[in-house]
Design a protein around this nucleic acid. Sequence first.
DNA 1: TGAAAGTAATTATCATGATAACCATGTAAA
DNA 2: TTTACATGGTTATCATGATAATTACTTTCA
Lengths: 147, 147
Amino acid sequence: MFFLKELPTQQMVAGYAKTFSVKDPNTVQNALTMMRDASLLLRLLESYFTEHGTSQLRFLVMIVIDREPERDSLLASEIAERIDVSRPVMTRTLKSMLEDGLITMEADSSDARAKCVAISKDGKKFLKQILPGYFQTISSFMKDLKQ
Amino acid sequence: MFFLKELPTQQMVAGYAKTFSVKDPNTVQNALTMMRDASLLLRLLESYFTEHGTSQLRFLVMIVIDREPERDSLLASEIAERIDVSRPVMTRTLKSMLEDGLITMEADSSDARAKCVAISKDGKKFLKQILPGYFQTISSFMKDLKQ
DNA sequence: TGAAAGTAATTATCATGATAACCATGTAAA
DNA sequence: TTTACATGGTTATCATGATAATTACTTTCA
């Protein structure tokens, strides 16, 4: 993830906008700002996760299972779909999370192909440990943004 | 680049916020929304670039050189710094862009280590071709967002 | 002015995203 | 019920991001 550190100035966007008949230079400027800010925040979060020996993807896997209201497990394909990541990446990630004891996997009783993924006790404990810092990182980033 | 397709609902964030004493759940919700939207737009743009045989990184390389007001070339390290990407990635990318004739590179006259990177004629032509669709992609995405 | 530190670029290597192709199982339709 | 298609998951492979270490040149300063 990366994006321009210094955004193009308004004049610059206005210049391009004129050359290429863009009707809404302000909207374009807003979009560029949004992508830059999101890139910065995602980097911050990624490095927060790295410091704690995990990653954004692993975190999201645990979150989507944890937030599921009526079930305590999801199929690997459901997780991939919700996070919007490819299935091979999900396979690889779940394998390493299983090895690290963060999740449990068992065969689905009604579909022999499927695998039910749940958060382990250790996984829940770990999630609880990292969530406060996650929210803290977001809050302080957003505060800085406004200034 | 990926992020949750379905954002946590306000209730859900409020729930986590209460559990973890987050003071500003709305700010957190806004940050999550921003990261999701930026991810989607960046994906759209990446696939636009792929369709045209290029990538966001190659595009940004050309943009930062093109927008430079008083010079028509930049050092590889300056480009990397502005785009906020690592130097080895820059080395690799510039190599392939040079092979494809999009840029020119020559030794710096005052520093034997450095390389001056400029956009080639073909590169400029190409940039002009893809910019309208780039702005169009951003505009229509932002329009959809508001609805 | 010569040693030490700093910097531009590269190489080697790893991490993590994607797609394509593949099994195995499940579902639907002739 | 057999054939065709769809789906869950995996494997193989590639693309593209990162960091660490290296080379070559520049700068600083004792």
